[in-house]
Design a protein around this nucleic acid. Structure first.
Length: 240
DNA sequence: GCGACAG
DNA sequence: ATCTTGTCGC
């Protein structure tokens, strides 16, 4: 259980009051967080979701970063609102503690949404309860914002799963110690699946149904693609 | 005990 | 995450 590097400590004042600055504090915060997550309510079903937000962060070599939030119309996938937050890293990347590196900036980007400040659902780039302490990025953001939230990751991390059938829509359980923590969901025929796990305020069924609507043409949901593109474009514009 | 490990 | 050209395929 080490301490965060000294250079990484600078700037933590920019984060929320009481935001962890060491790995030990972060782990303790996650233990408390899992209690606050809503893993019961099914949340909004596919036909009840009008607006969906996607968030992502892009990093530069010098420690600067750009967090982006994009809100899409769930039916047409048209962009309804966009927001970026420019900042710098205040916590290193530590497997299992990604939220402490990304969330302060992501929260800031969400606060910057002016046209559509309260989307029906938020989609994260990473995991929810599929996490060593059941407190991944999406759980954290869901509790922090009070909005239904789930995660869509690109790699299996440390979980087990059988390959889902080849067709779009096919899925198989993502497990950890025999416990179901998410799903490997095929969003395109013959393309590697994405890994969906609940954060808070929405069921796994509803999350997966929404992911399929958000991914009509590519592996990843449009929310993530749009947020990723926006963050990179803004970072490039501020760099060389 | 050590290493691997979302982005 | 980021570093990076061409290349195979619809």
């Amino acid at each position: 259980m080490g301490t965060v590097g000294a250079e990484e400590h600078r700037g933590v004042t920019a984060g929320p009051e009481g935001w962890p600055t060491t790995e030990a504090e972060a782990v303790a915060a996650q233990e408390r967080l899992r209690e606050a997550a809503d893993l019961v309510g099914p949340g909004p079903g596919p036909d009840e979701v009008r607006t969906v937000a996607g968030v992502d962060v892009a990093y530069a070599d010098d420690g600067s970063l750009v967090a982006a939030a994009v809100v899409l119309d769930a039916a047409s996938l048209a962009v309804l609102d966009e927001s970026v937050h420019v900042g710098h890293t205040s916590f290193p990347y530590v497997p299992g503690l990604l939220a402490f590196r990304e969330l302060p900036s992501v929260a800031a980007a969400l606060r910057g949404l002016s046209r559509c400040p309260e989307p029906d659902v938020v989609v994260c780039d990473g995991y929810g309860i599929a996490h060593p302490r059941r407190a991944g990025l999406a759980v954290h953001l869901g509790v922090l914002t009070g909005l239904p939230c789930f995660g869509v990751a690109k790699t299996p991390f440390v979980f087990d799963h059988e390959a889902p059938a080849r067709e779009r829509g096919a899925w198989s359980p993502l497990t950890m110690d025999g416990e179901r923590v998410g799903r490997a969901l095929r969003t395109q025929d013959g393309v590697k699946p994405v890994f969906v796990s609940v954060g808070s305020g929405i069921s796994l069924d509803n999350a997966c149904a929404l992911v399929l609507r958000l991914a009509p043409a590519y592996r990843q949901p449009e929310t993530t693609r749009r947020a990723d593109r926006l963050a990179r474009r803004e970072l490039a514009a501020r760099t060389g």
